[in-house]
Amino acid sequence: MNDSQQNIKKNVLEKIRHGDVVMRPKIYFTLQVIVVAVVAVCAFIASVLVVSFAFFSLHESGELLLLGFGVRGLLTFIALFPWVTLLIAVGLVVLLEWLIRYFKFSYRQPILKVFFVAVCVVCVGGLLITFTPLHTNLSDTADRGDLPFIGQLYEDVHMPHEDKGEFRGVVVSVATSTITITHNDHDADADDGTRVVTVPTNFNTSILHIGDRVYVAGDMTNGTVTAYGLSKF
C-alpha cells in the first residue's frame, strides 16, 4: 500500500476511535427490512383489492356483455373500461416490484419476469376475491350510504353511462319489438328512471320476462333507446 492508501486506513480508524464514525445497531437493519417487507405486503394487498374491484365492477355493471355486441360493443367496452382502476393497479404492481428488488430473490431475476409473475399473482388473487362476498357487502354498505371514502366508487358501478350508450334496468313490460325497463341503482337518490327500448332486429322478446335484469347498448332519441345489443344479466 502506498502512503495515501495508508492515510485512508489511519483516517478511518481515527474517526472510529474518536466516535466520529459509529456502527448502526443491528436492530436498525432489521427494522429497515421489516418496513420494506410491510410496505411491500401492503402494496400487494392494495393491488389485489384494486384488481378485484375492477373485476367486480365489470361483472356487476354488465359491461362484459358488450364484448358480445360486435365491433360497436367492443368500442363501447373500451370506452367504458375502468382504465383509471387499471392504472392504479399497474402503479401498485410497479411499486411492489421496486420494493421487492431490495431482496436478493428479486434483483437476480429479469425485471419483466418479476413483473409478469407479480401481475399474474395479483390477477389470480383479485379473481379469487371476486368469489367472496367482500365487494357485494361493501356495495350494499355503500348503497345504504354507510361507506365513507370509497362508497362513491361502488355507487358508480350501479350507474349506467347513458351518455355513452349504456342502459341497465329491470324489465317492466314486454311487447313485440319494444320493452320497457326501469333503472334502480339501489340507493335513495333521484337517478332512477324508465326507458322504452326498441330491441335489435331479430331479437326474440319472448325470452324476456317481467322482472328480468337486462343490459342494453344503444342510442337514445326522444326518450326511446334503439338497441344494437341487449342481454339478460
Binding site: 464514525v21 456502527m23 448502526r24 443491528k26 436498525y28
Partner: peptide, 10 residues
C-alpha cells in the same frame, strides 16, 4: 470504508 463500518451490522 466509513459507510461500510457504519453498516457492518447488516
Amino acid at each position: 470504508f466509513i459507510k461500510a463500518y457504519q453498516n457492518i451490522q447488516s
